[in-house]
């Protein structure tokens, strides 16, 4: 945490944890996709579930999904902008288990022209606008949005981590944190890598074309207040393996709420 993280963010009110932090989590969810979603289901836990409306949490989450930063003056009218953008949003509340009180699971799907991209991301707003993402598509991950984050879903086999690390090293990308988790031996695994600067396009292209890389995203840092690249992933990796980037069942392995713990919310 740096001095500018304490005196900040510059944001639209009313709550750094429930508005700015929520916006940043949704912004990360948006950047975990190549295309803008057409539908989103947001599951709110704990204090998020109890005080979402009062703190503008719902508006902030919708704003983030639309790519808005926490100080975007359009944030209070996010629902109108979502309608105009063709984004349909459903809010639910649930007990997501032993997690931070301000936690949200953001499941996005659809896309322009009938695209079927589907990504689910779960994270917590830690206070003062700081965030932590700990689950993507049911895989354990670990990143905080203060640095650029590379997400790689890959086949669980020897040498993948070394290969990715080598490519990053050759690109002069310094690794700040690295987290890997798999669902089962020889199945699929996910790594989240926080790096000091965005990977170059050739390095991204190379990684995306490795046969054991099933899905990959380069998320921008979202804490500095500097705008992320215009139009998430316009300059990102091309969906070379469109069939494999497309959504899949994320039902297993996640920190699922207990059955019956969910209640619908308008």
């Amino acid at each position: 945490m740096g001095l500018l993280d304490v005196l900040g963010p510059v944001m639209v009110g009313p709550s750094s944890s429930h508005t700015a932090g929520a916006c940043r989590l949704a912004l990360l969810a948006r950047h975990a996709r190549l295309t803008p979603p057409s539908r989103a289901e947001l599951t709110l836990h704990g204090s998020f579930a109890k005080t979402a409306r009062g703190h503008g949490t719902e508006l902030a989450l919708v704003a983030g999904l639309l790519g808005m930063m926490p100080d975007d003056p359009r944030l209070p009218e996010a629902h109108d902008h979502a309608a105009a953008a063709g984004l349909q949003v459903v809010f639910r509340t649930a007990d997501l288990g032993d997690v931070h009180p301000n936690t949200v699971r953001i499941r996005t799907e659809g896309g322009p022209d009938g695209a079927t991209e589907e990504v689910a991301l779960t994270g917590s707003s830690l206070g003062g606008g700081l965030v932590r993402v700990f689950d993507v598509d049911g895989f354990r991950v670990e990143f905080r949005g203060g640095l650029h984050t590379l997400l790689v879903r890959h086949h669980d086999q020897p040498g993948v981590i070394a290969r990715v690390a080598r490519v990053l090293a050759d690109d002069a990308s310094n690794i700040a944190t690295l987290h890997c988790a798999r669902k089962e031996r020889g199945g699929e695994a996910m790594m989240s890598v926080e790096i000091d600067r965005r990977l170059s396009q050739p390095a991204l292209d190379y990684l995306a074309h490795l046969p054991y890389v099933h899905w990959m995203r380069m998320l921008p840092e979202v804490l500095s207040g500097d705008p992320p690249p215009a139009g998430p992933h316009d300059d990102g990796p091309a969906p070379a393996r469109a069939g494999r980037i497309a959504g899949r069942d994320t039902g297993d392995g996640r920190d699922a709420p207990s059955a019956g713990g969910e209640e619908g919310a308008p």
């Binding site: 963010p9 510059v10 639209v12 009110g13 009313p14 709550s15 508006l59």
Partner: peptide, 18 residues
Amino acid sequence: EENARMGRIVAAPTAGSA
């Protein structure tokens, strides 16, 4: 009060205590 109106503020360190 600006914060409560969803105006632009600086969290210091949070919005509620801005």
